[in-house]
């Protein structure tokens, strides 16, 4: 689907990247811990998170994340917005909680960017 469809499904507000709404997205990753994002998220995915600091943008940039969806009506700081503009990473914000956001996108066909984390390393 297009980022504009994501916007409609989530009744989201576009904070950065109004010009990128025709971008195609298929997959998503949701997390509040950036190291989890770095460990598992794949390029081209949507990143769903409740964090709003500049490290979210840095993390998205490092991984070539397609767009950031802030949940729970979170508003990013002006530093975060400026960095997102500079690095050309769209930010949308939705009033839904992460569970609801993931559920609504999943129901419309967005899939997780990885199917499963194997329990090989005894992750804690």
């Amino acid at each position: 689907m297009k980022l504009s469809d994501v916007k409609d499904i989530l009744d989201a507000e576009v904070i950065v990247g109004e010009e990128n709404l025709d971008m195609e997205v298929k997959t998503a990753f949701g997390a509040d811990l950036m190291s989890d994002v770095l460990a598992f998220a794949k390029s081209g995915s949507l990143l769903l998170t409740g964090l709003t600091n500049t490290q979210v943008i840095r993390t998205a940039n490092v991984l070539d994340i397609a767009a950031i969806i802030l949940v729970r009506a979170k508003q990013p700081s002006s530093e975060t917005i400026a960095l997102a503009r500079e690095l050309k990473i769209p930010i949308l914000t939705t009033k839904y909680i992460l569970f609801e956001t993931a559920g609504r996108l999943y129901a419309k066909g967005i899939v997780g960017c990885l199917p499963k984390v194997e329990n090989t390393s005894g992750r804690t």
Partner: peptide
Amino acid sequence: GLPAFEISGQIYN
């Protein structure tokens, strides 16, 4: 073993 997005989506459904 599922990540947050996938399991949230499935439980939501």
